[in-house]
């Protein structure tokens, strides 16, 4: 479904991604793990058209989406739930969700989708009329995920969903992500919380210094000495 081939990208003169290749197949949960500064967020931003690719190719559903404008990529069915939630703080929760269905393909079925999403997130339903900025961190993360779901994406990308959340909320977050994957939505997750993520994922890639250094199933990576030493501190 998503194929990335020899992607290079960076900011100004510094090259962050030095030719990475990976793929996500339909129905899979794939994770990219790596240390801070390895290029995880840059990878996602390049996928979403926020950062320019210097070379390489990104294809989604067979179409080349490298360096297409962000809005076109969203229209094609690739939605990212960004790091740090990034809600519209002075919009109501309801308007935040409706913004999630902004893309033209989602507008016609918005009413039905809205109900489905609220079904999944009962906590969010209680907060519909409130400004998103007034919610607690955990609630905001739920709204962020619900907003992403509103687009009925083919591929949902999570960027560091556990960042800044207390341990209890991290657990809840991963339960929700499991629920989403159970619905058959293809998911790509970037995380530092290596244990939870590798457990959840069908396959994973390890990103180091802008290059893919390891790949395999979640279990293989968990068992790998390299991962255990470098990321799990064992």
């Amino acid at each position: 479904m998503l194929k990335v081939h020899d992607l290079r990208a960076g900011y100004g003169k510094s090259e962050v991604l030095r030719g990475i290749s990976f793929e996500v197949n339909r129905g899979e949960v794939v994770t990219i793990v790596g240390v801070n500064g390895a290029g995880k967020s840059t990878t996602l931003k390049t996928l979403c058209g926020v950062v320019r690719a210097q070379s390489g190719r990104i294809t989604f559903d067979g179409a080349d989406i490298s360096n297409r404008p962000a809005n076109e990529i969203v229209e094609r069915g690739l939605t990212m739930i960004p790091e740090g939630r990034q809600l519209f703080p002075f919009l109501t929760v309801k308007d935040n969700l409706l913004m999630g269905a902004y893309k033209k393909a989602a507008r016609s079925t918005v009413a039905k989708r809205y109900e489905e999403v609220l079904e999944m997130f009962p906590r969010v339903r209680e907060r519909l009329a409130q400004h998103a900025g007034s919610l607690s961190g955990g609630e905001q993360q739920m709204v962020a995920i619900a907003r992403g779901m509103m687009a009925s994406p083919k591929l949902l990308i999570f960027d560091e969903p556990s960042l800044g959340l207390s341990p209890l909320l991290v657990e809840m977050m991963f339960e929700i992500i499991e629920k989403i994957t159970a619905q058959g939505i293809t998911v790509l997750i970037v995380e530092q919380n290596v244990f939870h993520t590798l457990k959840l994922a069908d396959r994973g890639y390890v990103l180091e210094n802008g290059e893919i250094s390891l790949s395999g199933t979640g279990q293989e990576l968990l068992d790998s000495d390299h991962v255990r030493r470098a990321y799990l501190g064992m």
């Binding site: 240390v35 801070n36 390895a38 960042l163 530092q192 470098a230 990321y231």
Partner: peptide, 8 residues
Amino acid sequence: MAGLNPSD
């Protein structure tokens, strides 16, 4: 330490 990798 938020956002740092294990060795950092």
